[in-house]
């Protein structure tokens, strides 16, 4: 019994293609149907609350048009959702724009807390690439119970910031205000964005402006003493007296945003050269960061490049007397200061 080979082959190819279309990771029809099904009324409402909160946070007024745009829904559908939220007492409407009630704000913050916790979890504890963190958090923020959330937060040591540097609302629904930190409260190694420069008294303010500082500027603290704060801003070193520094409000940001122009990475160390570790980039998170620290890579550790492979990746380094091979993507996370060659 011989089946015609051409028809056997083509049947199999067709069956395989159908299976692939149905089950292709993320884009398969089966998964699409599942995720559409999950978009229940509650999920849509929670997303709308989040969008209005986001408007308020950025001091923009939430109009029907802007909320519809943010959600990606038609104006009619959005209007239905917002009406429902108003009936529930979560949103109020005046002057052609929507605002959150106290109850609505606390609800929005709960959802945002879950979102940022999950982002932090995906960044620290899994191998998902950065672009997937937000996507996964968008799904999970709607289905996590309060006790699961508490467990999640606790397992990560109650983190304060999400991987993008945004503060995670506390369980009580409190969120840190952007301008609650002053430049004086930072420590060497911190990276920050200037959020606010106090404009009174005018004498001090003009001094600060003369130094070239402006809100939105990224800075990196290199020294903090009782009589001065030294930091790098846009490649230039600036020294301020504490009384001046007190007039600058900042927000902590992930170090990698500010540090690139500050120190060199281990990847540049040639064979036979030695250096001292200054920091591990904040972009290196979770178990990857713990692994590097477990190997003894902490600020002050002496490190020298000993041996490399034909491709240069990985390279073996002498760390505290042990030969440790690191890959490029790890070595570039380690920031160093050269101490010359032996």
């Amino acid at each position: 019994m011989i089946i015609d080979p051409l028809s056997a082959l083509s049947t199999t190819v067709i069956v395989l293609i159908i299976i692939l279309i149905l089950f292709w990771p993320d884009k398969g029809i089966v998964w699409q149907l599942q995720s559409n099904h999950k978009n229940s009324q509650r999920v849509i409402q929670e997303d709308a609350l989040k969008q209005i909160y986001d408007h308020e946070y950025r001091n923009k007024s939430a109009t029907l048009r802007s909320v519809a745009g943010a959600l990606g829904f038609s104006m009619d559908k959005t209007s239905d959702i917002l009406d429902k939220l108003m009936r529930l007492g979560l949103v109020s409407f005046s002057d052609a724009h929507y605002t959150l009630t106290a109850q609505g704000r606390s609800y929005a913050l709960r959802v945002i807390r879950l979102h940022r916790l999950w982002e932090r979890y995906y960044a620290d504890e899994t191998g998902f690439p950065e672009k997937d963190w937000h996507k996964q958090a968008e799904k999970l923020e709607h289905s996590t119970t309060p006790s699961q959330a508490a467990e999640l937060a606790q397992s990560m040591g109650n983190p304060l910031f999400d991987p993008h540097g945004d503060p995670i609302p506390t369980i009580a629904g409190e969120i840190i205000k952007h301008d609650s930190l002053t430049l004086n409260s930072l420590k060497p190694g911190n990276a920050a964005r200037i959020t606010h420069i106090e404009d009174e008294p005018a004498v001090l303010y003009s001094q600060l402006v003369a130094s070239g500082l402006y809100p939105g500027m990224h800075i990196y603290i290199t020294e903090k003493g009782n009589d001065r704060v030294r930091f790098v801003a846009e490649g230039e070193e600036i020294v301020l007296a504490p009384v001046l520094a007190n007039h600058i409000n900042v927000q902590l940001i992930p170090e990698e945003l500010a540090e690139d122009d500050v120190s060199e990475s281990l990847i540049n160390l040639n064979l036979g050269e030695s250096a001292e570790v200054t920091s591990i980039s904040k972009a290196c998170r979770g178990i990857q960061r713990r692994r590097l620290m477990d190997l003894g890579i902490i600020p002050g550790t002496k490190i020298s490049a000993e041996l490399t492979t034909a491709s240069g990746n990985p390279t073996a380094y002498n760390i505290r007397g042990a030969m440790i091979a690191l890959r490029h993507d790890q070595a570039k996370m380690v920031k160093i200061r050269r101490t010359g060659s032996e």
Binding site: P25, G127, I324
Partner: peptide, 17 residues
């Protein structure tokens, strides 16, 4: 790149004496 991309990954390799 597919099924295992979510698993955590940390490289380390010691070259003992």
């Amino acid at each position: 790149r597919t099924l295992l991309k979510g698993q955590a990954s940390t490289f380390s390799l010691e070259l003992p004496p």
